[in-house]
Design a binder for these strands. Structure first.
Lengths: 197, 197
DNA sequence: TCGCTACGAAACGAATACGTTTCGTATCTT
DNA sequence: AAGATACGAAACGTATTCGTTTCGTAGCGA
């Protein structure tokens, strides 16, 4: 009985499996962006992916599991920032990137669906919050170190500052008809941190 | 032919009609907050309101019209602010009020559903955006006048400043597990406008 | 009091989506 | 080349919801 093998990866897994998984996850994200959490239908995902419905149920037990995995795939979009320039320049780069992602990417298209899903399902909510907290860590660290070095004015809470900057971008995407444009990054920094810095 | 009467209100409309309308709209808001835009079901609204389904269809042609009317009713929640105190105190009062509404009220409970609905339906989206823009006008005016009077530091865009403040509260509600508390209002003002003001 | 009408309950057919199952085919590993 | 298996297509029964309709009742205005 080759019990030990159970803990090793199969030497040559059938490539059809992983390919199906990726095609289906991409289709699921497209579906979430197109019709939202409430309108999400497995049959539409199958059609979108050019796949039989049975193939989806072969890989995921139900709709929620598929949605959770699709959200997980959004994390691959993460595209962190450079390491050169003044703190102000780095921060502007981050904000421009966030604006790009929130407005245009699969993440941005799925954002309302993610918010709705997080509101309805506790497991998705935990993931949603953790993901967002993780994504903001570099920004908070940058602000904290810039305050410590005197590049940014003292007396501000780095985390709250980051949330004010990032929050503005999300607010514009979700609550107004004028999404935040990368060109406004400098103005936003001036507004929140002051232009005299 | 009493044509002119067409333009006047019926002298004594059946009170059952308006009563049904209000009960149903309140139930619709509760339903939106509880199950969201996608899960919204007319039959559940009827049960929640203690009303026959036919009564709902007697007053609204379909689901979307009912949802739109329910959103319109949220506007009644508006509870503007006082006129006394320093600009800083007024602003803190506004932010505390926004925090209350966004976290606790029917509006706050329906917020994810509204965002999702606005994403899917152009008419609801226009209403959603206009409502939000309208709600922010007093805040923007306050900031603008405080900047003009020298109470707030110059060089900031009042609208963007207001969006940074309000946006932080919405961001905390929608994207984190730590909703904004009224006690943080002063810290938020310090962070965005500087504590030296 | 009398006629009118808004009402609640219930049943309806159509449509949609879930999750399952079957079956023949195409593609993988060995 | 041969056996194993992941696949797509299709059909299935169940459940849910839509929006409609019918009907008897209760509350309204006059």
């Amino acid at each position: 009985m080759p019990t030990a093998l159970k803990h090793t990866v199969d030497p040559r897994p059938d490539p059809r499996i992983e390919r199906s998984r990726q095609v289906i996850l991409a289709a699921a994200l497209a579906e979430l962006g197109a019709v939202g959490y409430g309108g999400f239908a497995i049959e539409s995902v199958a059609a979108r992916a050019g796949v039989g419905k049975s193939t989806i149920y072969r890989h995921w037990p139900d709709k929620l599991a598929l949605i959770a995995d699709a959200f997980r795939k959004l994390q691959d979009e993460r595209d962190p920032e450079l390491e050169t320039g003044t703190p102000r320049e780095k921060l502007a780069r981050i904000l421009r990137h966030v604006a790009d992602v929130v407005v245009d990417s699969p993440f941005g298209k799925c954002l309302p669906a993610m918010i709705e899903a997080a509101e309805r399902d506790p497991a998705l909510r935990r993931y949603h919050h953790r993901f967002q907290a993780e994504a903001n860590k570099p920004t908070i660290a940058l602000i904290a170190s810039a305050i410590a070095s005197g590049d940014f004015p003292a007396g501000r809470d780095p985390k709250l500052t980051a949330q004010a900057l990032i929050g503005t971008i999300f607010y514009r995407r979700l609550m107004t008809d004028a999404p935040f444009t990368p060109a406004e990054a400098v103005a936003l920094i001036d507004t929140v941190l002051g232009s005299e810095v």
